[in-house]
């Protein structure tokens, strides 16, 4: 049987909208498909989600597979996995991509287990390349690139011998953009077939926190670390963020010290951000932190230690005491706006 050269992106529906990471994956998938001549397809599952399937064409898909039913209103592992399992076994796409979100990390391993596919979690980059592995040549393999072992190592994983290569990808590490000339909308509708197992787990209620912190969307982020020393000093970080109209964030160490809530943690175990401006204050710049912010357009580091690794990823460095530099920064900035 000829292998289907298709790239599928599972579109995660969150509160009636496609998750950012799904759109980011579509843009990445569009690029990968162009290098291999593959067909990019979006897989949309839910209740009343046709508009999401339609929206995916703006990001470059050639075809969308849509499964709609009232029973699919909430994500539930078993029915969703059953749909994907059947589709993948029947059509064997070359690549299936998921967001490394709670939903993606719940369903992707289950589907990989059923379809006996290789799966790499939490990728930060994907590429296509010919690979020589153990004296064998493989054409157009998916390179699944991810940090490993506490972020100290970047591993490139391949799954050369499985028909379908699967990966979950971290939110925010890739950029989404609409394309200029989308393909005409072609949606294949697949009927949903109920099964007794579906009701073994029922969703009783869901709560989305209103006004939740959205660091990813902030153009300016002012971030503080353990180097601030006290919660009192950390207030200066908040003040600067406020002055610049940005969001306040912190490193893991600042969260552990109780200076700031964990929802505002930037780094490998927190949020990955790519703002226009990132100001890192009193942050030494451990690999885990840099992984979450080094894609910012401009980075200013303020640190009393001239050898702090954070300077290595910065565009501007200021060596000195943050408690005197921040007030000066605020003062100068305000004077410039007048």
């Amino acid at each position: 049987m000829k292998k289907k050269n298709e790239i599928w992106v599972f579109i995660e529906v969150r509160n009636g909208k496609p998750a950012d990471v799904s759109l980011e994956l579509l843009s990445k998938g569009y690029k990968l498909a162009a290098t291999t001549g593959s067909t990019l397809k979006s897989i949309v599952i839910g209740e009343k989600v046709r508009h999401i399937a339609e929206e995916s064409f703006s990001y470059g898909v050639s075809e969308s597979i849509l499964v709609e039913a009232p029973e699919l209103k909430y994500f539930r592992t078993l029915p969703y996995a059953r749909i994907l399992n059947a589709l993948i076994v029947e059509r064997r796409p070359r690549i299936v991509l998921f967001g490394a979100t709670v939903i993606g990390r719940d369903i992707a391993p289950r589907v990989a287990s059923f379809t006996k596919s290789g799966l790499t979690a939490d990728c930060t980059d994907l590429q296509i390349s010919d690979v020589k592995y153990l004296n064998q040549e493989y054409k157009e393999l998916l390179l699944q690139i991810r940090p490993a072992f506490g972020g100290n190592i970047i591993a490139t994983i391949i799954t050369p011998d499985t028909e379908t290569q699967m990966a979950t990808v971290r939110e925010g590490v890739m950029e989404s953009h609409k394309i200029d000339n989308p393909n005409p909308v072609v949606i294949e509708t697949i009927p949903f077939i109920k099964a007794d197992e579906d009701d073994l787990v029922e969703v009783v209620e869901q709560h989305y926190e209103e006004n939740k912190v959205n660091l990813k969307a902030a153009p300016v982020i002012v971030s503080g670390g353990y180097g601030l020393g006290t919660k009192e000093n950390f207030k200066l970080v908040e003040e600067l963020a406020h002055t610049l109209g940005g969001e306040v964030a912190g490193s893991r160490a600042a969260v552990d010290a109780g200076f700031i809530i964990s929802e505002r943690q930037v780094g490998q175990t927190g949020v990955t951000v790519r703002p226009k401006l990132y100001i890192a204050i009193g942050i030494s710049g451990a690999i885990q932190h840099r992984a979450g912010m080094q894609e910012a357009k401009k980075i200013i580091a303020i640190n009393s230690d001239p050898d702090a690794p954070i300077f290595g990823v910065s565009h501007y460095g200021i060596v000195g005491d943050a408690t005197t530099i921040i007030p000066k920064f605020i003062e100068v900035y305000k004077s410039k706006l007048k």
Partner: peptide, 13 residues
């Protein structure tokens, strides 16, 4: 099925 193709140490910027 997953094989480690390459490992790079993270290098400072």
């Amino acid at each position: 099925p997953t094989k480690v193709h390459k490992v790079d140490s993270v290098i400072l910027g």
